[in-house]
Design a protein around this nucleic acid. Structure first.
Lengths: 192, 192
DNA sequence: TTTATTTCTTAACTTAAGTGAACGATTTAT
DNA sequence: ATAAATCGTTCACTTAAGTTAAGAAATAAA
């Protein structure tokens, strides 16, 4: 399981065995059941996550209604906003499936970074890469209709459509579950 | 004018006079006329921008139609995607107003960074801050209706509504100019 | 200044998403 | 195993955005 973490890191920096062991000794791995809420609105957490297996979801509750804005799956990391700005969280994070992930907080991070400056370099690369991706994603979202966004998702993250409840997917696409059902029926209609 | 740049930098790091002079000696400042296109789709540029005065705009042309996805005004910086991924640009950048900005490319950057590691620290802070902002913005966009997005914009960037053409604003909000007109009429209606 | 072009708004009509409700299917809890 | 809750889809209806077109206003060009 930890291989997934090391494979991920290898995309950015190369580690010695010592470094690998230092990482493992931190005991970052957690196994969490489907439905578990990792972070609640209002909470002040410092935990950052990296998914090894499974799927977690970020959502707001606005006027009593869940609004899902992101899914994170294998090989994806998430630093909640509250970690960065040291304020209560605006959103929830919960597990869509039984999930194995690493949970780290900057206190641990300082320790690692002091020992291995490499990690700092990786974090910087990551943050820049994520920013670029996020901007492109945002642009795509803005310039597309719900139908195009759905078709785009089918292309780019086909697994999500299988593993995530439809009403959460709908919310993620910026529409209601009924609209997603209808939209899919419409697409099938067109194909025939 | 350069004070704006130094004020911005001062938010992240403090500079010595030497460092300030080194920056100025690079001659990064440019004055560009309204309508000037700084970056075209397909172009491979390495230039990054920082706005001192004025407003620039990022837009795609999709099916012959302009889709504006971002505006950058005073004290905001922009690193086009093509700079990061070394590929032809997917979008255009043009000046909404007569604009004064700095234009730098990483070649210059390497020089500065070698001399003053501080800049590296600032870049990292910036990139992390921008990522956080971008994520919050994206979430807000996803969880709002066009009308809410417009009202939100009135709160957060009231200047944009004045200085930017309506059809570009509409596109930025993810709707057509006619819908923006209607939506504004609807809001006025409600108030009375 | 006059002309041409672009921009903004309004209107009528079309299309798609929101809403409320119903129903079966699935999942979860007891 | 059964009851309860959640979920996905369909339907009819409402509301808002897309589309096409036209005209007024503002801007830029000649």
């Amino acid at each position: 399981m930890q291989d997934i973490l090391f494979d991920f890191i290898a995309k950015y920096i190369s580690l010695t065995d010592d470094e690998r062991n230092a990482l493992l000794s931190l005991d970052l791995f957690r196994s969490v059941k489907k439905g578990t809420i990792l972070l609640k609105e209002g909470q002040k957490s410092k935990d950052v996550y990296f998914i090894l297996k499974g799927c977690i979801r970020k959502y707001y509750i606005i006027n009593g209604e869940e609004k899902t804005t992101d899914f994170y799956t294998e090989m994806e990391g998430l630093t909640p906003h509250c970690v960065t700005n040291n304020a209560p969280s605006e959103y929830f994070i919960s597990c869509v499936e039984d999930t194995i992930l690493t949970v780290a907080n900057p206190d641990i991070g300082v320790e690692i970074n002091a020992k291995f400056p490499k990690f700092d370099i990786m974090c910087r690369m990551l943050s820049e890469e994520l920013l670029a991706k996020e901007q492109i994603n945002f642009d795509e979202f803005k310039t597309s209709s719900p139908e195009q966004r759905y078709l785009n998702l089918v292309q780019k993250r086909p697994d999500l459509i299988q593993r995530v409840p439809q009403h959460q997917l709908a919310s993620f696409l910026g529409i209601k579950p009924q609209s997603l059902s209808r939209l899919r029926a419409r697409i099938l209609e067109k194909k025939s």
